[in-house]
Design a protein around this nucleic acid. Structure first.
Lengths: 144, 144
DNA sequence: CGGCATCCCGAGGGATACTG
DNA sequence: CAGTATCCCTCGGGATGCCG
């Protein structure tokens, strides 16, 4: 065989013209890993918050309620590595580190904010669906 | 005090007119939990796949490369409970279960697909940023 | 075929303490 | 202030086996 159809190892596929073929549905594709960094529990919130403007570390930590220092640090590092977040350091005392979005990060954040606004505005619908689901589940339990 | 500013317990906040106030940045808000179901590792992929059309369980499992039976089952249950996915059962032998999006699920999926397309199309940019980041990190290590 | 129950391992992630 | 480092433990999630 000349080329595998899937790439279990993790390298990204390329077509006959050596163009990068990104497919999140393929396990091991770089785009899936990047998507997970973005859409992970804290990635969404960090990127959305930074779309409001630059934040210093502890300010961002306060904005994203419930995130631990460790996880925020890890999240920001991953996003910086992916070229979505920029980290500017002032070597003063006390130190001053500011996080902001890169142009690509801003484009990603816009999508995320659209999603968040939809979810927030439809929360009532979701809560109603949950209540209905739970009620039916309880019914089924009572029967047997 | 008349009303708490945050709601650590998990109930969703309401304003003076008893309108639901959804804020994903607040720990414990229902909208954050819903967002995590949607944007979690498998939620994004399941919803996006279902936007292509209805799927049976094992077909969906094949489409979402790498997902285990257990996780796909859990993911679909959560999304069904949130009113984003519909589950239609034919009690034949063998059983026939079809998953599809609700109208709200379709609206969510559209947002997710926009995000995925952006990430896939910019994968080259991301990979370049990663290489640059890793190169600089290696440099810093060599110095000390 | 669809999918719950059980077992089990390793990564995820919190709390705390220390450094520049 | 902005992190790293360490400890420790929960639980995410894979594998397997069994039912409708």
């Amino acid at each position: 065989m000349t080329a595998p159809l899937t790439n279990p190892g993790g390298a990204d596929a390329r077509d006959a013209d050596d163009q990068l073929v990104a497919d999140v549905f393929a396990r091991g594709c770089g785009s899936r890993r990047t998507l997970e960094n973005i859409a992970g529990k804290w990635g969404i919130l960090a990127l959305s918050a930074l779309h409001e403007g630059a934040y210093r570390f502890n300010a961002l930590r306060r904005r994203v309620d419930g995130v631990s220092e460790k996880m925020l640090s890890q999240t920001l590092q991953a996003l910086e590595r992916d070229g979505l977040v920029r980290r500017d350091v002032q070597t003063t005392i006390p130190p001053h580190v500011e996080y902001s979005l890169t142009p690509l990060g801003a484009r990603v954040a816009e999508r995320l904010i659209g999603l968040i606004e939809l979810v927030e505005s439809e929360l009532g619908t979701v809560l109603a669906a949950q209540a209905e689901y739970d009620r039916e589940a309880a019914d089924r339990n009572r029967r047997k």
